[in-house]
Design a protein around this nucleic acid. Sequence first.
DNA 1: CTGTTAGCGCCTTCAT
DNA 2: ATGAAGGCGCTAACAG
Lengths: 350, 350
Amino acid sequence: MAARSGPPRLREIAERLGVSETAVSFAVNGRPGISEATRKRILESIEESGWTPNYAARALFEARSSTVGFVVARTAEAVGSESFFLQLMTGLQSVLGASGYGLLFQVAASIEDELKVYRGWRAQQRVDGVVLVDLRADDPRPAELARLGLPAVLAGGPDPLGLVPSVSIDDAGAIDVVVDHLRARGHRRIGYVTGDPGMLHVGRRVEAFRRRAGEQDGVTEAVVSTDFSTGAAARATRRLWQEPEPPTAVIYENEVIAVAGVGELRALGLSIPQDVAVVCLEDSLIGTAMRPQLTALHRDTGRFGQDVARSLLVVLDDGAAPDSQERTPELVVRASTDADAGVGALSTDL
Amino acid sequence: MAARSGPPRLREIAERLGVSETAVSFAVNGRPGISEATRKRILESIEESGWTPNYAARALFEARSSTVGFVVARTAEAVGSESFFLQLMTGLQSVLGASGYGLLFQVAASIEDELKVYRGWRAQQRVDGVVLVDLRADDPRPAELARLGLPAVLAGGPDPLGLVPSVSIDDAGAIDVVVDHLRARGHRRIGYVTGDPGMLHVGRRVEAFRRRAGEQDGVTEAVVSTDFSTGAAARATRRLWQEPEPPTAVIYENEVIAVAGVGELRALGLSIPQDVAVVCLEDSLIGTAMRPQLTALHRDTGRFGQDVARSLLVVLDDGAAPDSQERTPELVVRASTDADAGVGALSTDL
DNA sequence: CTGTTAGCGCCTTCAT
DNA sequence: ATGAAGGCGCTAACAG
């Protein structure tokens, strides 16, 4: 075992160059107090040795961790949108990384555990802020984060209590686009197989769906909730067809339950889109790979993550940030609502 | 602005209790040198105030970050198995977290960038070790990690050069199970639509496939590679049917290209499993939600992550760890290879 | 059994 | 323009 392995210390490069540690520190942090000549000499040496300030030492001195935390409460329903999470994290990290922040990932078994994680991070000063997702009705997290003084941004807002700044999706506008599209295709009876209604964004969508359908002359709606599981999605689909007047179009909350629903529709002997049209509220590779391809709401989740990260950086700098809103997701019309659409789409990957 | 917000300091709780900082430190770290009475008094006070050692200070003193890094080189092909990554990370974190480690997530645009991330982490001492995935032919990462002295474990090995300990999947054994299953079902011409052949695990599987098919009397094989994109998967599928004797069974590397391939098979007017059987080498919710459900190799990716994490903890403690191997993935027979299978499977979520 | 002291690696006043 | 000194919060040698 070597006595001390690892990267060099600032003191070592100072000694090697015969200057003081202060000089090196000044050179690194670009502040006045040393001659241009020595500054250059120092920077060259640092460049060559690949030295970088020790993370812990710097964090200790600056009293900040340059790290953002992200907790996923890994309950059953979260399984539904797995690709969403990874894309979100990718977007987050790309912006955070460019500003020198790392992204600390943590899983929690429940909201209660998630709160414990926040308390622990706060007590240790392990993160400077966190990104919050999947807000539910009466969610305790915003209040706890506010109490802890832990900066946060809600990805997918707004927070009903306004305790946490948010970057939100225009759920209502997106639903309007979907309903209008189906209405224009002649559909009057529309079913909606939702995800967990306890999640606020699901609730907002359901509300918007009911409102828009009500506004549209002669459109009737039927909403069936699921817990995001494929079994529940299949059962919900069957239930819609137990009504005296089944729908002619069905909306599914995400791609996983859409695939399950489509399987069930086929088992019921229905063809898509001739007998029933299908819209998915989440676009995905799977939706474009299957046949028929799914008409879907498309949003750029990576970009969403970037915007959330930018918002969090503002909070970290200024202590607060305005709520913001993403562009309304676009409806990508494919064969599941329009037999003529998406013919050449095979060659286009998502 | 408060002069100093944030959690209390050790010194403060020491003062409040009228004991020395050392006493508090001893109590916290459970070492001898203080009376049971004061120890108890201190621990109670700490419990009540929610104090936890400052992360940066502890990391500085201990000269370790209690953090593990995970880089995903976000190239196009990585898209294929998104659910794999999140499940892997979940497994990793559950074990690492229990040992007080955090998981730092980073995206990189290329292998070169990934190397830069490792160098940066090493120079800053920001992570104690890393988890490596998706090893390719002539991959520079194991050698660089060894050079940096950055502890690592390869998830999905082995490393051909043996520079990095690994937890590996029994790719050959898994392929044997698949080929044997198809052979037993009477298939003599088997096609295999692979992922990126530059990835070592893909190469191992292809090799095993060719070997096993060769061993089986009268079985002919056809391998077509893709870059994991859905367009390439569809084209590869079509190509198999341009041969004079198309296969009667097709194996797909993962669920995304399987879905694309199934769509293409349908477009070719083939029914599954009557005209062609389909096996997917990656089990997923999608494969069980679609119709017919996909016969697939099932492995517990979360558990895989846990095993990788345990292996890394051993490396971190002992400086090295033996290579290990996961249980051979199980073949879950469903309707895509057996019309009678998986009938009641609708009620079972993955 | 307690308290004093020094140091982890870095940054930044303050003298020189 | 440079060097010495002190502190960020914690821990572990030391004396007492």
